[in-house]
């Protein structure tokens, strides 16, 4: 059974490849950074992904936070709790703040390049 689980794990993902949600999170993180938010919290990411997809329903709690944890484990994101004084002052729960790492940037570039390749080949093969 452990061998079967291992095979499933290998089949599910190529090494270094990002699943669509992980890619969407990295893209949203990069988009937030261009808007001046180097650090972002979970809801901000869900909102950015939802806005990009023009969807009212945001990524589910379990799906989002599991993917964030996975990206952190892959070292594409880092996270920290915000200073406890800030939420205390603003009377709200504390936020876990995530940052896209240099490795995350590289993975995003690789993913875009990997997507560009087949698209370029399709354009080249398409009849004029």
């Amino acid at each position: 059974m452990s061998r079967y689980l291992l095979i499933m794990k290998i089949m599910r993902r190529k090494p270094g490849a990002l699943v669509p949600l992980e890619l969407a999170i990295c893209e949203a993180a990069a988009a937030l950074r261009t808007r001046g938010h180097d650090e972002f919290h979970g809801y901000q990411i869900a909102k950015t992904i939802g806005d990009a997809a023009e969807s009212r329903l945001l990524t589910a709690y379990g799906t989002l936070y599991r993917a964030l944890a996975r990206l952190e484990k892959m070292r594409l994101l880092t996270s920290r709790w915000e200073d406890p004084e800030i939420p205390a002052r603003e009377n709200r729960p504390g936020r876990r703040l995530y940052t896209l790492t240099a490795l995350g940037d590289a993975a995003l570039r690789d993913a875009h390049r990997a997507m560009e390749g087949p698209a370029r080949a399709r354009r080249r093969l398409a009849p004029a």
Binding site: L57, L58, T59, Y61, G62, A69
Partner: peptide, 25 residues
């Protein structure tokens, strides 16, 4: 919307739970 976000993530919650199991495999 909150309940939908909850319901759609149940599968991932359970998978996450299995990943963090404390009982040896």
């Amino acid at each position: 919307l909150m309940l939908l976000r909850l319901a759609l993530g149940v599968h991932d919650d359970l998978c996450w739970r299995i990943e963090h199991r404390t009982v040896p495999f």
